[in-house]
């Protein structure tokens, strides 16, 4: 269940990556994630936001606070209208990159969160949705 207000941030430039990190940190603190989990979700957000800028040609991220039974969570949905990913499985592997990075972005981000979901259509864009639960 989504609780509180969702917020959407534009992810168009490298400066926005920093803005996303700060917004994610603020929300992670608000829902009571511990320091290690805060650091993990902020780092995952940084990787995904950079992907959105570099590979997706810019897009948006939606930040939502979740409540499920006693658990609280933070969900981030990155969306772009870029070229999309043809082979998602390959893109998730460590070391795979089409750009300038180390190729740790997607696979690395997946290891830092509780839930990871990616959908992509070549030519239409990519959506990556990640959730971090407290506990």
């Amino acid at each position: 269940m989504v609780v509180g207000k969702a917020s959407e941030i534009r992810v168009a430039s490298q400066d926005d990556v920093v803005v996303v990190r700060q917004a994610v940190r603020a929300r992670a603190v608000e829902i009571g994630l511990n320091l290690v989990d805060q650091t993990k979700i902020v780092t995952a957000a940084s990787e995904l936001a950079r992907n959105t800028v570099v590979y997706g040609g810019g897009g948006t991220v939606l930040l939502e606070s979740l409540l499920d039974g006693g658990r609280r969570g933070l969900r981030l949905t990155f969306e772009d209208r870029g070229p999309g990913i043809t082979d998602i499985e390959k893109a998730m592997q460590d070391g795979y990159t089409t750009g300038v990075g180390l190729g740790l972005g997607l696979g690395g981000a997946r290891r830092l969160v509780s839930e990871f979901h990616i959908t992509s259509r070549p030519g239409e864009g990519t959506q990556v949705r990640v959730t971090k639960w407290n506990g």
């Binding site: 650091t39 780092t43 740790l104 690395g108 290891r111």
Partner: peptide
Amino acid sequence: MQPSVAITLVELGL
């Protein structure tokens, strides 16, 4: 380097 940063980096694969 902070412990939380180190743990996260290792998890990230770096």
